[in-house]
Amino acid sequence: MSLEARMNKFQEGLQQQRKLVEQLRLEAAVPRVRVSECIEDIMKYCEQHTSEDVLINGFLRPGDNPYKEKGGCNIL
C-alpha cells in the first residue's frame, strides 16, 4: 500500500472515531430522570386511561362490542 493510501485510510479511521466520540458526547449530555420517577408517570398514565380500555374491562354491555357475533334473539 502506498503511503498516500495509508494516509487516506488513517484519515478515514480518524473521521469515524471523531464521529463516534461526538455521538457519545451527545449521549453523555442527555439529561436523565430516575427510573422511579418514570415508572410513577407510566403508572399514572395507566390509571388515568384504564377505564376506557375495553380490552381490559370489556364493554359495559356486551352488545356494544362491534365484533360481537350478530344473530340469536333480539329483545324487542
Partner: peptide
C-alpha cells in the same frame, strides 16, 4: 501524529462509554 490522535479519541470513547 494521526495514529496518536486516533488513540486519544479511542480512549475518550471508552471513557465516555
Amino acid at each position: 501524529g494521526t495514529q496518536d490522535s486516533i488513540e486519544v479519541l479511542q480512549r475518550e470513547a471508552e471513557e465516555l462509554k
